[in-house]
Write a protein that binds this DNA or RNA. Structure first.
Lengths: 132, 132
DNA sequence: TAATCCATTTACGCTCACGTCAACCTCGTA
DNA sequence: TACGAGGTTGACGTGAGCGTAAATGGATTA
């Protein structure tokens, strides 16, 4: 029941990206679909990966960073103490970056709001006074 | 009292970027410092612009998008109705993108937390059982 | 006066994240 | 059998965002 699969163009359409992008993500080690012949077969897991990639990108992560997080997640049960500590560092760095982003977003949203108000005011005066 | 100025290397140090970047931002129309001879003189306003640029970049905005927002902000009092509506569209788009980012951040933070927990657990078992 | 420091322009180089052919294969259908 | 719709692998192109000389120009300092 968990054996649902997807073609590359299926996923491309669903996520509104190109097949080129999906193959590129594979080049970068972000997904590894199985094959039937030479045709790529994507599993549910691969689909989830794609969602995660796109989410990471929306947050400004590079593909390399996303890959780092994936590798981290994949290998976590079988790691040395040094590796685990490195992981924790990465995780905490990302977390700090996200905290910073939250602050940044709050500030920019405020700025956008005041800009929006100014726009709306300007539009009002355009409508009341017909002197263009 | 508002006439405090900065050299390009001042600002580069303060924001931990290179002078090359600052000049590049000028090429892209994001700052326009005055000159003494051919030497660039940055005002407080320019400094604020740099802060905004860096904040925008942290949020994943391209320099072109940041410039769009600046232009929008600069020209807003003196605009045609069509321009004002275009502005509102841009503003609302950015706002929507920020809302999406907030959601994304929440999700990713959750994922990071569970990953962190797994790391910490793995580290604990490393310490209690010395069998490496 | 020479050296040093900070600035400038010009310009080519590089990485990232794909876009865009080109040439090919493979399967189902007309 | 021909062909069109999908898939594949190269390989080169592209735009953004700088890095990195190289050559030059004042200012201060020894």
């Amino acid at each position: 029941m968990n054996d649902k699969t997807y073609s590359i163009s299926n996923l491309a359409k669903e996520f509104d990206i190109t097949t080129r992008s999906i193959r590129f993500y594979e080049d970068q080690g972000l997904v590894y679909p199985s094959r039937r012949g030479q045709t790529r077969i994507y599993s549910k897991r691969d689909r989830v990966r794609l969602m995660l990639i796109l989410r990471g990108k929306r947050l400004g992560f590079s593909l390399a960073e996303i890959r780092e997080l994936f590798d981290l997640y994949d290998a976590s049960p079988t790691n040395s103490e040094a590796q685990l500590k490195r992981m924790l560092n990465i995780i905490q760095d990302k977390n700090a970056a996200l905290e910073q982003q939250i602050k940044d977003i709050a500030i920019v949203k405020l700025e956008l709001e005041t800009a929006e108000q100014r726009c709306l005011l300007a539009l009002e005066s355009h409508q009341t006074s017909d002197a263009s």
